[in-house]
Design a binder for these strands. Structure first.
Lengths: 358, 358
DNA sequence: TGTTCTTGTGAGACCGGTCTCAATTGCGAA
DNA sequence: TTCGCAATTGAGACCGGTCTCACAAGAACA
């Protein structure tokens, strides 16, 4: 470990010396606190300019205890959903003069824990997290600084949270499918669930996932479809095995005639898999996905989507968190933003040649 | 400005007191430097665990002068090109135990300057920047810490740089178009250029933009196409006016029969505009774009793309920068990564009904 | 004119680490 | 037995800011 050359930077003391005042006075001018007479102020300011003084934020943070930055931990930056939400957060933060330190969890709890530890060690003033898993949230409960949850609520964690009305969205989307006759409808999500689904509703603590599933199941029930739980497929992330799983699903004898995808990344993978299997949308299979990703409107056919106000989602959590950083004492808020369904061309009626068995 | 409650955190001194050793000794154990006897080490470690000690990175950075984090300034996080590159950077950084602080410039120099100022004040150990503009780079020259350039080289700035062989890529892609007979070929980029192009090659200092244009022009020249400069269109970013510009281009009497797009965001916008005009790819117009964005393979027709090793791009700059942080003294490197063209279905021969005039 | 406020300024402690330096101890070599 | 050296430890300076407190000087008041 080699000692860095350590470019000696200009400090308050240097400026003070140059301006022929005490360090305390120079600090007052430079830090913008306390009272200083006009002539002294200008003298210090000139000295600072002459020396090209730049404050060391680290030192400042050390004494104030405030770092002026917030940490954001998302599942996957590459997912356009998150990039857009992050932009919402950044935009709001910038307006408040707050920096954003971004970390990727890759949807893995361990990475999430480590990221949070690091951010906390860096003394972030607050955290925005998209919890990767719902079962393992001890590390979130321990967080001492203000915390806000993005997109995924945790019932056990009473903190500021912004989500969308996932349940209702899934309900409406699924209804859209049942209403045109579909009975074998699959819900495909990237979320992972240990074990298989049957009656495991209670094990899914992540609101987003659970609510969507509940909405999905409710619509199925309404339509008199039984055993819909069997058509919920977890773990369809970015991986070879996930793609293989999709192919298997699409090639099975009782393959679904309609699919609801949990996000645009999954949907794109599905779209490719469907092509690979020589199936046609919407003739052979219908598709609806969460998130109006930009590409969904240019495919053939364009995809019907559940449009989430993603940018607003990011904007809102950031606002909530920043308000709290300013010392707002009101109880945690849980904001649920509405979604709309953008109907395009990927939903067709149930293919008649495929008799339903369930 | 309200004083934050300031949760009193556990410090080295607290641990020292608990372990009944001096602060210096506790610090040695906790900081992992110097020599400590085994019994003392365990005593300190136990005390630390009992007290749940967490080091304050800020304080540590203050004395060491190293913050353990690097700053990354990109044009637009939402552009999948950048998100992927950023992941490349993050992955490498994580392996070295270095954090990444991300900032968005929105491709605006002022925002870029401000972001760099903030990151520097936060004492980042190094910076990775994708310079938004090439003319205004004074702020980059002034940077005292190690700096590395991503995707865009600046001839005047002799620092570690990783780019792709833009010129050759543009050359090959354009050739692919000229070879099937196209003569009215447009190059559309999001980059902005003050004034219009004519002979302004010298004004474009951003390597990516200049090299691509040079490659494009070279291919045109080879094919005996004159005045190709007129077919270079700048400023096609994310905006209403940009889209309007594209529509105008596509509706003009001498509209291009083939287009080369500078990135996938521009390409998507183009794709939509082409549809809007009722044109068909590749019958009426051919399209090639830089960046193998995930959606390019699912459109109808799928788009022929110039596949850049984006992840590797990010990975390489990060490696270069980190090597330099470790005190590597060798002269700055300029790495140029190769690209490949993935041929899909968006290139067709020149539509015969459109006579070329140029 | 004496007293009490203001206001401006300087001295120095402090934040939580790192790191230098000197002091103490134990042990093998002479 | 004495000396030298290495290993271990403690005291305290330091990083670059913030902030408390004491004090001096002029203003306001009696």
């Amino acid at each position: 470990m080699k000692r860095s050359p350590k470019v000696p930077s200009i400090t308050v003391s240097d400026v003070a010396r140059e301006a022929k005042v005490s360090k305390a006075t120079a600090a007052r001018v430079l830090g913008g606190y306390g009272t200083v007479s006009e002539p002294v102020r200008t003298a210090v300011l000139e000295a600072a300019k002459a020396l090209d003084y730049r404050p060391n934020e680290l030192a400042r943070s050390m004494t104030t205890g405030r770092s002026g930055s917030i940490g954001v931990v998302v599942g996957d930056i590459e997912n356009p959903f998150f990039s857009l939400a992050v932009r919402g957060i950044s935009d709001v933060a910038r307006l408040s003069g707050i920096n954003v330190i971004l970390a990727n969890s890759g949807e893995e709890v361990e990475a999430e824990k480590s990221a949070i530890r690091v951010l906390l060690a860096k003394q972030v003033d607050g955290l925005i997290v998209t919890p990767a898993q719902s079962g393992d949230i001890g590390h979130l409960k321990e967080i001492a600084c203000p915390l806000a949850l993005l997109d995924r609520a945790l019932p056990e964690l009473d903190v500021d949270t912004v989500t969308v009305d996932d349940r209702n969205a899934a309900l409406r989307a699924t209804r859209m499918l049942t209403q045109v006759g579909h009975r074998r409808i699959a819900y495909v999500t990237a979320a992972v669930l240990s074990g298989d689904f049957r009656g495991a509703e209670s094990r899914i603590n992540t609101s987003t996932v659970r609510e969507r599933i509940l909405g999905f199941l409710e619509a199925c029930r309404e339509a008199g479809i039984e055993g819909a739980e069997r058509n919920i497929h977890f773990g369809s992330g970015r991986s070879e095995s996930a793609h293989a799983m999709l192919l298997q699903l699409l090639r099975s004898a009782d393959r679904p005639t309609a699919i609801l995808a949990s996000d645009s990344v999954v949907a794109l993978d599905l779209f490719k898999a469907i092509r690979e299997c020589g199936l046609s949308i919407p003739r052979d299979i219908s598709l609806i996905t969460f998130h109006d990703a930009d590409w969904t409107s240019v495919t053939t056919p364009p995809i019907t989507v559940i449009d989430q106000p993603v940018y607003a989602l990011g904007k809102s959590v950031a606002e909530l968190l920043i308000r709290r950083l300013k010392g707002d004492g009101r109880p945690p808020e849980r904001i649920v933003l509405p979604t709309t369904i953008i109907e395009r061309m990927s939903v067709g009626s149930r293919p008649s040649q495929l008799a339903d068995r369930s």
